[in-house]
């Protein structure tokens, strides 16, 4: 399913969160949404997932207006991994992942219990949480919980997966692990849009980067094209050390170039 936003504008009161944003994503690519705090990344992701209605601009799914799509149909084609990844009750891991099958359920009971079981197995395998199946989520570490929630999103077997800062609270090992999982989703034929802060991981894993600054798209191209010293300095206000290894670029922020936000 191709998601396409044109001229997206979101305002809260007098404050503009997004102004005239054009962005698109489709299966087969891993798109990274990057930008400074407050640039509007999470808001944009919400709009793409149809969780938020823009004040101006259009959102289309496969060319048709997004508003026209039935909620349950959309739920089967688009899965979201939200930022605040909490689970209210001490559910077991397999039950949490099973929640991902709800969009496929029939009126009174599961419409295809066999397929559900297989999908849950596949999702847990893909997210590497099979060994945790019987554990309750409140006993898991941060990395384990993120993978379980990712498995839940994968269980939907949707064409598009939107993830809002899934690796923010993880250690380097688990950060790389999750990014590898997302890349695998794309290899299997899905499309991923992920909000990231870590520029190196964004450069390494994403096919395309969309750089936002204060609600506007500043760049939308390959990581090599987007992540230049000048552009990073202009948007983030930091000087960086660029390098490459194994054919992928890495970015190491070095010094601050502005005294405070808003200057320079």
């Amino acid at each position: 399913m191709r998601i396409e936003g044109t001229g997206l504008t979101v305002r809260i009161g007098a404050t503009s969160i997004l102004s005239g944003v054009d962005v698109a994503a489709e299966p087969g690519e891993l798109v990274g949404l990057i930008g400074p705090n407050g640039a509007g990344k999470s808001t944009l992701l919400s709009v793409l997932a149809r969780l938020r209605t823009p004040q101006a601009g259009t959102l289309a799914y496969d060319g048709a207006p997004a508003a026209r799509m039935d909620g349950r149909a959309l739920a089967r084609r688009l899965a979201m991994l939200a930022q605040s990844g909490g689970v209210e009750w001490p559910l077991t891991v397999d039950r949490v992942v099973a929640i991902g099958r709800l969009p496929h359920a029939g009126r009174f009971a599961a419409s295809d219990p066999e397929h559900d079981r297989e999908a849950i197995q596949r999702a847990m395998h893909a997210a590497n949480v099979e060994a945790l199946a019987g554990r309750t989520v409140d006993t898991l570490s941060g990395g384990e919980r993120t993978r379980v929630l990712l498995a839940r999103a994968l269980a939907v077997e949707a064409e598009m997966l939107l993830a809002d800062e899934p690796i923010a609270a993880l250690d380097p090992y688990h950060q790389i692990e999750v990014m590898e999982l997302l890349a695998a989703v794309v290899r299997r034929g899905g499309g991923v849009v992920v909000v990231l802060h870590d520029l190196s991981l964004a450069a390494r894993f994403c096919d395309r980067l969309v750089l936002l600054d204060r609600g506007r798209v500043v760049a939308d191209a390959t990581p090599e094209q987007v992540l230049t010293e000048d552009r990073i300095a202009a948007v983030y206000g930091v000087s960086v050390e660029l390098g490459s290894r194994d054919g992928a670029r890495f970015v190491v922020p070095w010094t601050r170039l502005r005294k405070a936000d808003g200057e320079g």
Partner: peptide, 8 residues
Amino acid sequence: ATARTLGF
């Protein structure tokens, strides 16, 4: 948010 994306 997740509940809404699950179609509810």
